[in-house]
Amino acid sequence: MGHQWDFSSVLANTDALLVGAIGTLHIFAICLVLGLSFGLVVGLGRYSRNGWFYFPATAFVEFFRNTPVLVQILWFYFALPILLPFEISPLGAASLGISLNSAAFSAEIYRGGIQSIEPGQWDGARALGMRWGQIMRRIVLPQAIKRMLPALTNRAIEIFKMTTLASAVAYVELLQQGKLIASLNFNPIEAYTAVAVIFFVCLWPLVQLSYLLERRLRRDE
């Protein structure tokens, strides 16, 4: 009892943690961009009345929302290379898994946002002679984005947390470095506490931002 907390070994390894942090940010950026942009495409498919777009989009969303991300990551890392003539790197597998999962979730956010724009806006724009693409670009999406910002921010927070799953395929990010430091210095307490603190410090501003956005949205409604 009474463990002596000693962070010196952790502080001695700040460069290792920095490498991990860069890895985390790297995969976060990839998955954020891919996930949210592909999510828009799928979301439009979910919103479409054309069966050719709606059914594949729905199948995609249902599948990737109802399977765990870790399963997807391991599938992309161990299973997919069997079908392909090339290997998939840890970054590739983890990015694929997290991005597709995020795309499925953000698709529903986009669909909800677009649907929440009242039909009168479509009427007003159509009566001027605007085409579908113009209406989306100039009238619907600009208004929808404001409403979707809280949910999309939450999605970004989830993506940031999901980057730790990449450690399961040995991608070099923060948690993976934490494991390394713990195993080399026999200080799992300090190592994992440090990793947890780093994540908390990074995410807390984002979480506060999402609360702020949620409050502002509710006030504007």
Binding site: F160, T164, L165, I189, Y192, A196, W204, V207
Partner: peptide, 22 residues
């Protein structure tokens, strides 16, 4: 706040590797 703002996997590692020692 702590359990919503830190990744579940980090929490799991902490409870499995760190807590027993404490």
């Amino acid at each position: 706040e702590v359990f919503r703002t830190t990744p579940p996997l980090v929490q799991l590692f902490w409870f499995f590797f760190a807590l027993p020692l404490i």
